[in-house]
Amino acid sequence: MAAVMQQAAAGGRVATRGAIKIEDVVKIYDPEGAAVMAVDHCSLDIAAGEICMVVGPSGCGKTTLLNAIAGFHEITSGRITLDEEVLCSAEQPKAEPGSDRIVVFQNGALFPWKTNLENVAFGPIMQGKLTRLEATEKALSMMADAGLSGVEHNYPGEVSSGVRRRVEIVRALMNEPRVLLLDEPYRALDSLTKSVMHEALLEIYYKNKVTIFFITHDLEEAIFLGHKVAIMTTRPCRPKKVLEVDIPHPRDYSVLTSKRFRELIDETNEAVHEEALKAFAAGEKEG
């Protein structure tokens, strides 16, 4: 553990793949009719192996952005690239979903009819990268690494939501993605579980080094985890302020009480609060 931490500390971001460029992306829902602008000329650069936290009020359009990267939704114009390859653009508005970009969903999307182990082993078998036996072996060792020994043969419905979320992150990492897309994965968890999950996520990150695109509306969570925090405006969504968090990784919970952490919170709190007020005034629904 200590060795891993040192290596991570020394190297900082060691990943060479997984750079995302969001260039001038616009998303208009129902352009013919109501024409709701969800994303407005949004540009954001995420370096390979960076944890980019996207903060904004509920319903501001963050998830729209995530869905565009994942290939679940179309964009109206602009361009998103992953390591210089175009994922989607005005010409090809919907990206092809792929195992290089795996989403961890807000309320979790582990298949309830598969055991945790079967869930984790699912991806490589589907892609034909590993045989069932090999995938199961790899899944077992990855679960053990993530402290998930003992729940392999349980169904997701039998374990706590915190454990489920960790299983889902391990399932995502089994695909060796370049980017992990996390859509408020800890929203439904209580604050104690959340703090455990944050450290667990960082630990997993230090071992696996992927780019993380993490949506949240919790500013403390964002600054604690992220290299970069993009504070978004409420609908239409666009970065209002991009903050580089200069607290060195690896981090642990002592960061929360550090002076620099508080300073960064103070610096950004106002911007976040302003957008939250706007969202509240606009009466945006959750989601």
């Binding site: 994942a70 290939g71 679940f72 979903p97 792929g98 195992s99 970009r101 795996i102 989403v103 969903f105 309320n107 999307a109 298949f111 009819w113 598969k114 699912f122 991806g123 589907m126 892609q127 034909g128 695909n175």
Partner: peptide
């Protein structure tokens, strides 16, 4: 849940895989 389809597609499932591994058990 549409997220099961999205997750399965992201992880490289074919149409047949999705039918057999998502729709069938999901409907059981």
């Amino acid at each position: 849940d549409v997220r099961y389809f999205q997750a399965a597609r992201s992880m490289g499932s074919s149409q047949w895989d999705i039918f057999r591994r998502i729709i069938l058990p999901g409907t059981l």
